[in-house]
């Protein structure tokens, strides 16, 4: 599998580095411009926008790599290699994740670097790291899991689209399938949340019931609930809780769709 990853990287690194270069240049230009204007408010927003666009472009490109295998001639090479469907899929997934992480980290660091050029930072490293408590890490991880599962879901939708619609021209069907699947999963996740009303207190790692949270939420005013693909997170009374059921369910969905996609491309694909 590592062999295939090597070639996946070889095939995509030029594009990724290109995107990265453009983003860094834009960021630099933007920061120097903003500094002259001394309009600090816009910095955060635009920088974020640039990062988002870069990641989105990379995302489209990487996802397209899998689509190419299914709809273009290069599939004749990929699917006659002595690899299982899971190996091929796993390689593509890992490389995709690798690029996203690299892009995200580099852009973030660069932004930080740029900021420090223009603003006097009193914040020491210690203070920066204090942001990373168990809560933020846990939330960050669920967002990561959510991203991974979404990606797997996209692959699955593409494979399903290829298997069910033999006509190669309808290459866009995967998106419709993806939306439907995503909706289904979101709906079932909520159902599970209701059915398994047990939450993990992200500070103390104790399991807590929904009742308890409801009671807490009545005490404080700052409450919010966030649902992403990975889990349902509730914040109440200054503490954060994560629904256990939804987390397990999401991971389960991820694994199942991964294996499902592998099965499809190994056994059901008709090129």
């Amino acid at each position: 599998m590592g062999r295939y990853m090597k070639y996946e990287i070889k095939g995509s690194y030029k594009f990724i580095l290109g995107v990265l270069a453009i983003v860094l240049i834009l960021t630099t230009v933007f920061y120097s411009y903003q500094f002259k204007q001394s309009n600090m408010g816009a910095i955060g927003g635009v920088a974020y926008l640039i990062m988002f666009v870069a990641l989105f472009a990379a995302f489209l490109y990487i996802v397209d790599s899998f689509k190419k295998e299914l709809y273009e001639d290069r599939g004749y090479l990929t699917f006659t290699l002595p690899l299982t469907g899971n190996q091929i899929l796993g390689s593509k997934l890992l490389v995709a994740l690798m690029w996203f992480i690299i892009l995200g980290v580099v852009i973030l660091l660069y932004n930080g670097f740029m900021l420090s050029r223009f603003i006097e930072f009193d914040i020491s490293f210690r203070e920066i790291f204090s942001v990373f408590n168990t809560e933020t890490v846990a939330v960050g991880m669920t967002m990561f899991i959510s991203g991974v599962v979404t990606l797997i879901l996209i692959y699955f939708s593409m494979a399903l689209g290829r298997v069910t619609f033999r006509n190669k021209k309808i290459g866009g069907m995967w998106f419709a399938i993806f939306l439907i699947l995503n909706g289904l999963i979101g709906y079932t996740t909520l159902k599970i949340t209701k059915a398994v009303p047990y939450y993990l207190d992200l500070n103390s790692f104790k399991v807590v019931t929904q009742r308890a949270i409801e009671q807490l939420s009545m005490l404080e005013s700052m409450n919010f609930m966030s649902i992403n693909s990975a889990s349902v997170i509730v914040s109440a009374g200054g503490r954060t809780f994560m629904n256990i059921g939804s987390l397990i369910y999401t991971i389960f969905i991820g694994v199942a769709t991964f294996l499902g996609t592998g099965y499809l491309i190994e056994n059901k694909i008709d090129l």
Binding site: G11, R74, Y76, T80, L81, P82
Partner: peptide
Amino acid sequence: GVYTKSIVSYLPDRNFLYNWM
């Protein structure tokens, strides 16, 4: 399956190599 793919050398009727190569 995987084993047969390792002993079969296939020439398709199209250009199947990755075109960045």
